[in-house]
Amino acid sequence: RQDVQSNIKAASDELTSLQAEQDQMKAQLERLTIAEEENNKKAQKTEADIKETSKQVEQLEKEIKLLQEKLEKRNAILKDRARSLQESGGNVEYLQVLLGSSSFGDFVDRALAVSTIVDADRGILKETKNMQDELKTKQADVKSKLASLEDMKAELDEMTVQLAAQKKQKDALAKELKDKEAKNEELKA
């Protein structure tokens, strides 16, 4: 009788120990499930960020293409203007235009015309410079966003590997828990 009581007590102690171990495993399983859910959310957010950044890169590339086309047209105008200035002798031509006036009113009209031409040339040069600066800025933005995109993709790949490892660990833990529950039931019986 004493042996039976001793066996019952040992089985009861082992049952209590197994129950505590099961509770620990359940808590660990819960933590793994929460971590897996958080990683899934992060992965989904990262994928959304990747899509958004890809759209921004596409838009920037379109804008860059338009700017390059405008710059090519602007450069053609500047080349023509520079060629005509070189052929006509530059500032000397302006002086001849001013000195060739027949009256004071004609002189003022010619001076305004020369001033308008010079201002237009300056405006073209200034706009061209601004376009070139804008183009450089947008190209730098594209490079930055592409680098960011690559970082996000690497992060997403890392998260995918972590998720797979967590799922494997969770599945192994769940199997171990079932085995211990079966053993626990066996001991009870």
Rank of each mutant, 00 (worst) to 15 (best):
R1C: 01
R1A: 01
D3I: 02
N7Y: 07
I8Y: 15
A11F: 07
A11C: 05
S12E: 15
S12I: 09
S12C: 11
S12T: 15
E14D: 06
S17N: 11
E21S: 14
Q22H: 15
Q22W: 10
Q24E: 15
M25T: 10
K26N: 14
Q28Y: 08
L29N: 15
L29Y: 14
E36C: 00
E37Y: 04
E37I: 01
E38F: 04
N39W: 03
N40L: 05
K41C: 02
K41L: 04
A43F: 01
A43Y: 08
Q44N: 07
Q44G: 06
K45H: 04
K45T: 04
A48H: 02
A48E: 09
E52S: 06
S54H: 00
S54F: 00
K55Y: 06
V57N: 00
E58R: 04
E58M: 02
I64M: 05
K65P: 05
L66A: 14
Q68T: 13
Q68P: 07
E69C: 01
K70E: 13
L71C: 07
E72L: 10
K73L: 09
N75V: 02
N75G: 03
N75C: 01
I77G: 09
K79L: 01
D80S: 09
R83M: 02
L85E: 15
L85Y: 12
E87R: 11
E87S: 06
G90M: 04
N91K: 13
N91F: 04
E93G: 03
E93R: 14
Q96F: 10
L99D: 12
S101I: 04
S102V: 08
F104V: 08
D106C: 10
D106N: 15
F107P: 07
V108Y: 15
V108K: 15
V108C: 07
V108N: 09
R110I: 02
R110Y: 09
A111R: 11
L112I: 08
S115Q: 15
I117S: 10
V118K: 14
A120D: 15
A120Q: 14
D121S: 05
R122T: 10
I124E: 13
I124P: 04
L125S: 09
K126Y: 05
E127G: 05
T128V: 02
T128N: 14
T128D: 13
N130Q: 11
M131H: 12
M131L: 12
D133Q: 12
E134F: 05
E134H: 10
E134V: 03
L135H: 02
K136T: 13
K136S: 14
T137Q: 15
K138P: 02
K138Y: 03
A140C: 01
A140L: 03
D141Q: 12
D141Y: 07
K143C: 00
K145H: 00
K145S: 00
A147Q: 06
L149Y: 00
E150R: 00
E150Q: 08
E150G: 00
E150V: 00
D151Y: 03
M152T: 00
A154K: 10
A154E: 06
M159I: 02
M159H: 13
M159V: 02
L163E: 10
Q166F: 03
Q166K: 09
Q166L: 05
K168R: 10
K168P: 06
A174Q: 14
K175C: 05
L177H: 12
E181Y: 07
E181F: 03
A182T: 06
K183N: 09
N184Y: 12
E186C: 01
L187M: 13
K188R: 09
K188L: 02
A189F: 05
